[in-house]
């Protein structure tokens, strides 16, 4: 008998609460955009914030309202862009998978330091002290603000310079926005060649503080078969639309500033 009363009480209690919640769910109904929900389901769900929105749900909402393009998610790449475009009923443009690249090769040995930094272990803090400990105004501070922020754990500071693990990198661009020196760039995933220097000082000045700084000798420019590499503001830069990854510039560079990145583990680079 007791057990029946108990069961009855709980059935009534459950029914009352259920009814109240049912009424409340009608009264407090928030219209949900079906498109946004569908888009969330195809997004990667890493909530990295690389698109500039607070998370995948926020981006989905923006896309569904037409405020952001279908290919806004850099992490998902082309596959996700196509899926999103299908939900939105439009044709997506082809998106290229990107990866982050730290444009500095000034390791502890190669770059000169102004002072020994012993403050808070963060690049942004170090920046406050005369722009950091490296003499080069555009050198990697090597304290890993980017590594801390990377939602995929793809960045590691090796020998005083941040290094991106290309396979872990999803190209979200959080590090690009974080770096106080603005020396991280997004480059197409398949491109091998990059200029590991962003110093805009004249050659002689750059040479005085870094063994692997671009001295704007223009040898790369002369050797490039497609004219993809140009020296501007005393530093070489590559036009990735023209670059064919031949690696001639990296071969000829007298300062070994241009690198031929190894994208696979068994390659030498």
């Amino acid at each position: 008998m007791d057990i029946l009363i108990a069961a009855l009480i709980f059935a009534v209690l459950g029914a009352v609460i259920g009814a109240l919640l049912a009424v409340a769910s009608k009264a407090f109904e928030v219209p949900v955009d079906e498109k946004a929900e569908n888009i969330v389901s195809v997004l990667p769900g890493a909530n990295c914030g690389g698109c500039g929105y607070s998370g995948c749900a926020a981006l989905a909402e923006a896309i569904s309202k037409g405020k952001a393009p279908c290919g806004s998610c850099t992490v998902g790449g082309d596959e996700v862009a196509q899926a999103v475009a299908e939900i939105m009923g439009v044709k997506a443009e082809k998106t290229v998978r990107m990866r982050a690249q730290v444009m500095c090769s000034g390791t502890l040995e190669k770059a000169k330091h102004k002072y020994i930094y012993e403050g808070i272990d963060n690049c942004i803090a170090a920046m406050q002290l005369g722009g950091g400990s490296k003499v080069c105004p555009n050198g990697c501070l090597g304290l890993g603000a980017c590594a801390q922020k990377c939602p995929f754990g793809a960045i590691e500071v090796i020998d005083g310079v941040a290094k991106v693990d290309y396979h872990k990198c999803k190209g979200c661009g959080v590090c690009v926005a974080t770096c106080p020196k603005h020396i991280i760039k997004l480059v197409p995933f398949d491109s091998r060649v990059y200029v590991g220097c962003m110093s805009v000082d004249k050659g002689a000045v750059t040479k005085s503080y870094c063994e692997s700084g671009c001295i704007s000798c223009r040898i790369c420019e002369k050797n490039c078969p497609t004219g993809a590499i140009t020296v501007k503001d005393f530093v070489a830069s590559i036009d990735y639309d023209k670059c064919i990854n031949c690696g001639k510039c990296a071969e000829k560079c007298p300062r070994k500033v241009i690198h031929f990145a190894k994208l696979k583990d068994n390659e030498n680079g």
């Binding site: 209690l13 609460i17 407090f28 109904e29 928030v30």
Partner: peptide, 17 residues
């Protein structure tokens, strides 16, 4: 049971307002 119901309720309330 009561607490779970209340939390559901406040969740809907906050989502709306």
């Amino acid at each position: 049971l009561v607490i779970a119901g209340l939390v559901q309720f406040i969740e809907m309330f906050l989502k709306k307002f």
